[in-house]
């Protein structure tokens, strides 16, 4: 099914523009299989746009994207997605278990309804994120961290090879952050490729073994130790990063 010679994700000359202004510009990116990669960059750098364009959720101005050498249409079942928490209405009338089961709708296909097997898979995913007691809860009653873990569980039931996560760590509590990190590591150990839009530069070296620095264009991409340098960060964020984070970051990546 998947060849080892092909990278998990391969992007060529990808450009996306909103109203003539390029959001991401001429992206070339190869992500090898099995890495845990952070996508970092300032606000408006096009991090979410990159993910959405790769998943065909927004139109591309130019470029191609392939997963294990296959175009997206043929590789859909290999790809899992955790959208930003704020992208949905959490007052929607449904339960946690129901949301997680939605991760299986793609596999079920048209018309077929989820049954006990799907329910069990969803419960198992909820167990992994520590929310099994919340299965019957209304999603409107969840805290931000619980919402994020619900989305994570929904991605887990997809049982994909490649995961895209859009800011899963944004404004979550410590319990959720550690739960997410655990899940990321488990996925990584099982050979999955995980790409995470990440904001906290301080934890990049601790959580991720691969990093892509993005600011409309790709600034650098590679193993964290090589690519996550002060020089590259300054190219990405401008000079201010050195005073803010530089010292700690380099100390962290030197470990």
């Amino acid at each position: 099914m998947q060849s080892l010679t092909n990278p998990a994700l391969s992007i060529d000359d990808l450009t996306v523009a909103y109203h003539e202004k390029p959001a991401i510009w001429d992206i070339d990116l190869d992500v090898p299989a099995g890495v845990l990669m952070a996508i970092v960059g300032p606000n408006g750098a096009g991090k979410s746009t990159l993910i959405k364009a790769a998943l065909n959720l927004i139109p591309r101005a130019a470029g191609t994207v392939s997963f294990f050498g296959e175009p997206y249409e043929r590789a859909r079942s290999l790809v899992g997605y955790v959208p930003q928490r704020g992208s949905v209405d959490w007052d929607f009338p449904t339960s946690v278990l129901d949301v997680v089961t939605m991760g299986l709708y793609g596999k079920l296909g048209w018309f077929r309804r989820p049954r006990k097997a799907e329910r069990d898979l969803a419960l198992h995913a909820l167990e992994q994120v520590g929310l099994v007691d919340f299965a019957d809860r209304q999603i409107s009653q969840l805290s931000g961290g619980q919402q994020q873990r619900t989305f994570l569980a929904r991605a887990l039931v997809q049982d994909a090879q490649i995961y895209f996560m859009d800011e899963p760590f944004a404004a979550v509590d410590a319990v959720t952050e550690s739960a997410i990190v655990n899940i990321l590591r488990q996925l990584n150990q099982r050979g999955k490729t995980v790409m995470v839009v990440h904001h906290d530069l301080q934890t990049v070296a601790e959580y991720f073994d691969w990093v892509t620095l993005l600011n409309v264009e790709i600034i650098a991409s590679g193993p964290t130790l090589k690519a996550f340098t002060l020089e590259n960060l300054q190219k990405t964020y401008g000079g201010r990063v050195s005073s803010l984070h530089g010292g700690q970051l380099l100390a962290a990546s030197a470990q």
Partner: peptide, 21 residues
Amino acid sequence: LLWKEFKLVTFDAEFAGANGM
């Protein structure tokens, strides 16, 4: 017939799209 499709598109169209719907 299209209950689950309508539900998912209403709740989270982006995820539905990424999920192959």
